[in-house]
Design a protein around this nucleic acid. Structure first.
Length: 432
RNA sequence: GCGGCAUUAGCUCAGUCGGUAGAGCACUGGAUUGUGAUUCCAGGUGUCACCGGUUCGAUCCCGGUAUGUCGCCCCA
């Protein structure tokens, strides 16, 4: 195998066995989204670089070191492969005035790009299902979005995905807390480890997440964001929790849950599993009331979340999920010039009747054609040689049933005979 | 971006204390005329990831690179 041409690091081919599994997953997801009134939207994969800088935040890891940014050599535009979907979605909503229209519950499924070091569950090209609700201010939509997650895990047959929620409050509340927290941490500057010193002014909340036992006591006494939330913020958070309790969805409040993107406020949440190693978050989101205005639209509250498709698929696999084998119903075997012409007619005719048909192409002995028919997983082989071609007939052979004799039928009678067999075997399965 | 471990056939993996390599599955052809999944026989199964160094000689030892993987950082 030549190694001069291979896929870019962290960007993977999804081969047919896997891709069929993805399609099943996407079918489930689309059905689920439709059940909540969400409508699809498809944005470009490339957006102007400033969009992401403004939406995500200049000092975030994503913008500082993970974006695939480049200059369009033809016109000098600064462009970026989207590292997440919300910014582009909000841009599209503003550009087309969707906030004033009915479809304000939107979803998309597609590739995202982040230049990180790849490992299991983290890739440079990965896929997200993004769900956005534009123009909703109350805690009801936040709660509904969380409930949606619980239902999807059920639809996918997953369990053990735990819900964590938190409230970031409003930007001014968060800023006050941040200032108090930094002031508090500065008193302990000497005992901070290297990580802590580095994060003191970039991401002080993360310091409280440290696994260093020497810092635990200091962390316990740090100012808590919840104490800085105003009445309205607390009421919003309580509103979300009330719906969750009414619906019987268990959750834990994680005061250290912060999102990596600057645009979040109030409710944030994550669905987490311990079965995927270091990449345990399969779904995360929150409220972003300021983003629409920040990107040039009129002030519009909004809320959304994204799921990592690779991670969820891995989790389904971990739970024993296997794709259903994809097989045609009929494989058409033929040999000889006249038989080949009839075979095309037969195959197209059976497809007219709604059957999935694999027509053998490429010639070869009957024997090898039969091997391929078997390997295809087809329930029936239709066999056409010169004898059959001469009389407008074909042999119908069951490949999956024992003791069923091969029959010679007029080609026009094939479909009916096949359907009879398929119905019979369905009945047997139901009775069994 | 940092550290640990790994890379042998299309796939899953053996192996050589340094003397240019194996198994199973899959694949191809054959076992009297035109019939699969069971059997039998024959056969590609490969720069032993790539580049360089040590050596008479490297798939094996050493260095670098690439890719994967685990953890850190961060995130879906």
């Amino acid at each position: 195998m030549s190694h001069t041409l291979q896929s870019v690091r962290g960007m993977n081919d999804i081969l047919p066995d896997e891709a069929e599994f993805w399609e099943l997953f996407e079918d489930t997801v689309r059905t689920w989204l439709k059940g909540y009134g969400y409508r699809p939207i498809r944005m470009p994969i490339v957006e102007p670089t400033p969009l992401f800088k403004r939406a995500i935040g200049e000092v975030t890891d994503i913008v500082e070191k993970e974006m695939y940014s480049f200059e369009d050599s033809l016109n000098g535009e600064q462009l970026t492969l989207r590292p997440e979907g919300t910014a582009g979605c909000v841009r599209a909503v503003i550009q087309h005035g969707l906030a004033n229209q009915i479809p304000r519950r939107l979803y998309y499924i597609g590739q995202m790009f982040r230049h990180e070091r790849p490992q299991k569950g983290r890739y440079r090209q990965f896929h997200q299902v993004g769900v956005e609700a534009i123009g909703f201010a109350g805690p009801d939509i936040d709660a509904e979005m969380i409930l949606m997650g619980a239902r999807l895990w059920d639809d996918l047959g997953l369990d053990g995905i735990e819900l964590q929620i938190n409230s970031l409050g409003q930007p001014d509340e968060r800023a006050q807390h941040r200032a108090a927290l930094i002031a508090y941490l500065e008193h302990y500057r000497e005992i901070l480890d290297e990580d802590g010193k580095r994060r003191l002014y970039t991401n002080p909340l993360r310091i409280l997440d440290t696994k260093n036992p020497a810092l635990q006591e200091m962390c316990a006494g740090a100012p808590k964001l919840m104490d800085y939330l105003g009445e309205a913020s607390l009421a919003h958070f309580e509103g979300v929790q009330r719906v969750l309790r009414d619906a019987g969805v268990p959750f834990t409040i994680n005061p250290r849950l912060v999102r990596g993107l600057d645009y979040y406020n109030l409710t944030v949440f994550e669905w987490v599993t311990d079965k995927l190693g270091a990449q345990g978050t399969v779904c995360a989101g929150g409220r972003y009331d300021g983003l629409v205005q920040q990107l040039g639209g009129k002030a519009t509250p909004a809320c959304g979340f994204a799921m990592g498709v690779e991670r969820l698929i891995a989790l389904i696999r971990e739970s024993g999920g296997e794709p259903a084998a994809s097989a045609p119903e009929v494989y058409v075997v033929h040999q000889g010039a006249a038989a080949s012409r009839l075979a095309f007619r037969v195959a197209e005719g059976l497809r007219d009747d709604g059957l999935d048909v694999l027509l053998h192409c490429g010639g070869g002995a009957f024997k090898s054609q039969m091997k391929k028919a078997d390997a295809s997983g087809a329930a029936f082989a239709v066999i056409i040689g010169d004898d059959e071609a001469a009389t407008g007939e074909a042999q119908l052979k069951s490949l999956r049933e024992e003791g069923v004799a091969q029959r010679k039928l007029k080609v026009d009678d094939l479909a009916e005979a096949i359907f009879d067999h398929l119905i019979d075997s369905d009945d047997e399965q139901e009775q069994g």
